[in-house]
Computed example of a mutant assay.
Amino acid sequence: MDRLEAMSLLREAVDRGSLSAASRALRMPVPTLSRKISDLEARIGTRLLVRTTRSLALTDAGIAYLAAARRILHDVETAEREAAGEYAEPKGQLVLTAPIQFGRLHVLPTVADFLTAFPEISVRLLLNDRNVHLVEDEIDMAVRIGPLVDSSMVATKVGTMRVVAAASPAFLARYGAPATPDDLRDRPVVAVEGPMVETSWRFAPTARTAPIDIPLRPRLAVTTTEAAVDAAVLGTGIIRLLHYQVSEAVETGRLSLVLEDAEPEPVPVHLVHATRGQMPLKLRRFLDFAAERLRSRLHELPRNPSSRATAPGLNKG
């Protein structure tokens, strides 16, 4: 049996969540895929997967084996790329990931320009609002917005992103503009539900002496940032999002920024990758190319029209 092939099939089955999903991706019949994994288990002498008709799970032995298989496959694939010349000239496929909205607005235009400049490189751009594991998911580079939690990654900072509060001019005319974060306690707010439950909004007081947490009791909770912006434009409540997520609505006057003097510290934006030491030229070229353009885009965001000029009765501080 081909053990490298069997390792790849096992990895694909686990990553896809089922044998049927893996068979579709690999264009391999399910019985063939199942038999090859069974042959691998027989060779090792232990069960790696617990199969059901719709899903599968790794055994304890399977967890350990798959982790080792991923390392082996990564080393083999790196060796193949090096032999194919990817370390000598920029060519091959890059796999990138970014948050959905930021990726669409800022990464995609950068990728399009990059493909024009480097015709021998192709790109898979995976837009996802969860932080995927670069090595396990075989991703070359990711855009990360916020503090980095994985110190093993190589990070290049490309800028910062403001965390802003905003509301519609009609909402501000009805309720008045909040002068301090405490004013949010008696005004409707719109929250975004995500993997991490947000129970409060943190602001820095005007004196910048210590942060202040405002308990979150949303009048409306939604599951996407786009829906939150739409709700705020309709006058449902005040939202608090990353600046790029509201910039278009602010530019067109549909939303106005509030509590700008009490904004928390901007969060960092990085390009991160797992490669240390020598990296494929395609990755080096993209890092150099994208870092410059993303820095320029992020630098332009704070220049967007602010609420000071558009919102009736808005705090001028």
Rank of each mutant, 00 (worst) to 15 (best):
D150R: 15
D150N: 15
S151P: 03
S151N: 04
S152K: 09
M153N: 09
M153V: 13
V154E: 12
V154G: 11
V154K: 14
A155S: 15
A155I: 10
T156I: 05
K157W: 14
V158A: 01
V158I: 14
G159H: 14
T160D: 14
T160K: 12
T160Q: 13
T160M: 13
R162A: 11
R162L: 07
R162M: 15
R162G: 12
V163Y: 13
V163A: 03
V164K: 06
A165F: 00
A165D: 14
A166L: 02
A166G: 02
A167G: 07
A167D: 00
A167T: 02
A167W: 13
S168L: 14
S168A: 12
S168K: 02
P169E: 09
P169F: 10
P169R: 02
P169I: 12
A170M: 14
F171N: 12
L172Q: 07
L172S: 00
A173C: 06
R174P: 06
R174T: 02
Y175W: 15
Y175V: 01
G176T: 03
G176L: 07
A177S: 15
A177I: 04
P178T: 09
P178S: 06
A179Y: 14
A179Q: 04
T180W: 08
T180H: 09
P181H: 04
P181G: 01
P181W: 05
D182A: 12
D183G: 05
D183N: 07
L184F: 06
L184G: 00
L184C: 07
R185C: 09
R185D: 08
D186K: 12
D186T: 13
D186G: 08
D186L: 13
P188V: 07
P188D: 05
P188A: 08
P188Q: 10
P188M: 09
V189R: 04
V189I: 11
V189K: 00
V190T: 00
V192A: 05
V192H: 04
E193P: 01
E193H: 03
E193R: 06
E193I: 04
G194N: 01
G194A: 09
G194C: 04
P195I: 01
M196R: 10
M196D: 13
V197Y: 07
E198R: 15
E198N: 12
E198Q: 10
E198V: 08
T199P: 04
T199W: 09
S200L: 08
S200I: 02
S200H: 14
W201P: 06
W201Y: 15
R202L: 15
F203R: 03
F203Q: 06
A204R: 10
A204P: 01
P205W: 03
P205L: 10
P205S: 13
T206F: 11
T206E: 12
A207D: 03
A207E: 09
T209M: 10
T209G: 14
A210H: 15
A210L: 01
A210I: 09
P211M: 00
P211N: 01
P211F: 13
I212H: 00
I212D: 06
D213H: 09
D213R: 10
D213I: 05
D213Y: 11
D213M: 08
I214A: 13
I214Q: 11
P215D: 05
L216T: 01
L216Q: 02
L216M: 13
